[in-house]
């Protein structure tokens, strides 16, 4: 499988987020993915991010996998108890999914089904522990499995947090629980990432920063104002404001960030284009990938 092999060979990897549809028409996601398949090592399929109901990660990933694309599925404790999580993980392995990423999941109140009841039977670290247990050939009840799954396991880490000590302690717990690659929230200030990585010396993990495609000045301002932990330098907003073609400038900024991360020795990059997946080829072309 390309992702794990490339990371272990210290080659720069390109991940692209591919939201499954809210509905059953998967054609847009498939065509976007197919258009960049040669440049992208794996497609990260979110598990109902922001608690918005849509096709599940496993289902969306299988649609892409059936087209020969490598995927990273997300598993999250918000909507499934330990039986469902383990059952889906066994199914994922049997269906050929290799990469699994455990995520916390946003609270139900952030989504579009705010009357729903959250599950949260186990937490993120326990989920990582459960994956490790399954890989050892047993389930969470200690019962032997008929064939153990094998996954390349990841999770999330936030280098931009103000509570860095806690974040690193949490990271160490995730590493101990079996996570090997970590995807960050959007990074606009590479210095923040580099500072964080210096703190991680000695840890054998792959940190994959997210490059988020800004779509407008409004979106950039929103990120600046409402997400304290996203360091979004003012120069990016100025560039978009002054650009004759703003969308092209947004793509340019994302592409430059990818190129800069590659040049500075990052393990890879995770591209999030939230609905503008058709811009992926242009971003990658700008980045020279």
């Amino acid at each position: 499988m390309r992702l794990q092999e490339k990371l272990e060979a210290k080659e720069f990897v390109v991940l692209a987020e591919m939201e499954p549809p809210k509905g059953v028409d998967i054609s847009a996601a498939v065509s976007s993915a197919m258009s960049v398949k040669n440049a992208v090592d794996a497609f990260v399929v979110p598990e109902m991010s922001n608690a918005v109901m849509r096709m599940s990660s496993l289902g969306g990933a299988m649609v892409l996998a059936n087209k020969g694309l490598e995927t990273v599925i997300q598993v999250c404790c918000r909507d499934r108890n330990r039986l469902a999580l383990q059952g889906d993980l066994l199914a994922a392995h049997a269906l050929g999914i290799k990469n699994v990423m455990a995520v916390a999941g946003e609270d139900i109140s952030f989504g579009d089904h705010h009357k729903a009841r959250a599950v949260n039977d186990i937490d993120l670290l326990e989920l990582l522990g459960a994956i490790k247990t399954l890989m050892s050939g047993k389930d969470m009840a200690g019962i032997e499995l008929k064939g153990a799954p094998d996954f390349f396991v990841g999770s999330t880490v936030n280098p931009s947090t103000s509570a860095l000590e806690l974040e690193i302690q949490e990271l160490d717990r995730k590493i101990a629980a079996g996570a090997r690659f970590f995807i960050t929230p959007p990074i606009f200030d590479i210095a923040v990432l580099e500072k964080f990585q210096k703190r991680l010396e000695g840890r054998q993990v792959f940190i994959i920063p997210t490059v988020l495609l800004l779509k407008s000045v409004g979106m950039a301002r929103y990120l600046q104002r409402h997400f304290e932990q996203v360091h979004l330098p003012e120069e990016f907003i100025t560039r978009i404001q002054k650009a004759p073609e703003r969308v092209r400038e947004c793509v340019q900024i994302a592409g430059e960030l990818v190129a800069a991360l590659k040049a500075r020795g990052a393990s890879g990059v995770h591209l999030a284009t939230i609905g503008w997946e058709d811009k992926l080829p242009a971003i990658l072309a700008t980045a020279g990938i």
Partner: peptide, 12 residues
């Protein structure tokens, strides 16, 4: 109708 759980613990 499906219950609104926001008034239960699920609303925070």
């Amino acid at each position: 109708d499906p219950k609104d759980w926001t008034s239960s613990r699920d609303g925070g």
